[in-house]
Amino acid sequence: MSGTRPPVPPFTEETARQKVQAAEDAWNTRDPHRVALAYTEDSEWRNRDVFLTGRPAIVDFLTAKWRRELGYRLRKELWAHTGDRIAVRFEYEYHDEDGRWFRAYGNENWEFDADGLMRRRFASINDLAITADERRIALP
């Protein structure tokens, strides 16, 4: 059983912003199991050139991601919404095990089921090498 993840569609400006903030907060925990609970059991993802289906694949993907992307910190911003869909722009910063910093920019398109679980996530992402002095997103 997946449960309900309010807010649920159809989204208003306010509820779309709430959904985006909830996603940002969850991803910043860097807890793959917590993050995966926001997606349907058979959720479809495209993350850069990786295609995934289902929560176990999402957990595996995020576990590997946060082993590589250390000090990860994310910001998301609502771009548009309608009915059961939300578009966001985002940026996050991280460093690798050698201490090199990166900022990743991108856009995501989300589609939700009636219970407010994300059934599709399509992310386009570009990385930029930065110095530690160029960081904009502070860790808590």
Rank of each mutant, 00 (worst) to 15 (best):
residue 100 R to P: 00
residue 109 N to T: 03
residue 25 D to I: 00
residue 49 D to I: 04
residue 124 S to K: 08
residue 113 D to H: 04
residue 20 V to T: 12
residue 82 T to A: 13
residue 104 A to K: 10
residue 48 R to N: 10
residue 106 G to T: 11
residue 128 L to C: 02
residue 9 P to G: 09
residue 69 E to I: 04
residue 42 D to T: 15
residue 1 M to C: 11
residue 72 Y to F: 15
residue 13 E to M: 05
residue 33 H to Q: 14
residue 97 E to A: 12
residue 10 P to C: 10
residue 44 E to N: 06
residue 70 L to P: 01
residue 48 R to V: 07
residue 12 T to L: 07
residue 14 E to N: 10
residue 77 E to K: 08
residue 40 T to D: 03
residue 73 R to N: 13
residue 32 P to M: 09
residue 50 V to R: 13
residue 88 V to G: 02
residue 128 L to M: 07
residue 38 A to I: 14
residue 11 F to C: 11
residue 121 R to L: 07
residue 128 L to E: 10
residue 115 D to H: 08
residue 115 D to C: 03
residue 55 R to F: 01
residue 76 K to S: 09
residue 131 T to F: 00
residue 80 A to Q: 09
residue 36 A to S: 10
residue 27 W to A: 07
residue 42 D to P: 11
residue 29 T to F: 03
residue 36 A to H: 11
residue 110 W to S: 03
residue 109 N to R: 12
residue 49 D to S: 12
residue 112 F to H: 06
residue 40 T to G: 10
residue 60 D to L: 09
residue 9 P to R: 10
residue 70 L to C: 06
residue 31 D to N: 15
residue 125 I to H: 06
residue 12 T to E: 04
residue 119 R to K: 08
residue 58 I to Q: 05
residue 103 R to G: 09
residue 131 T to Y: 00
residue 96 D to R: 05
residue 132 A to K: 11
residue 133 D to I: 13
residue 103 R to V: 12
residue 111 E to K: 06
residue 26 A to P: 03
residue 40 T to P: 04
residue 137 I to D: 06
residue 131 T to E: 08
residue 119 R to Q: 05
residue 126 N to R: 09
residue 12 T to G: 03
residue 116 G to V: 08
residue 67 R to Q: 15
residue 107 N to K: 03
residue 47 N to W: 11
residue 8 V to Q: 15
residue 138 A to R: 15
residue 99 G to Y: 13
residue 93 E to F: 06
residue 100 R to W: 00
residue 97 E to N: 06
residue 70 L to Y: 00
residue 61 F to I: 11
residue 35 V to H: 08
residue 119 R to T: 01
residue 78 L to M: 06
residue 112 F to T: 03
residue 66 W to M: 04
residue 35 V to I: 15
residue 125 I to Q: 14
residue 77 E to V: 02
residue 29 T to C: 05
residue 54 G to K: 08
residue 60 D to Q: 15
residue 6 P to V: 14
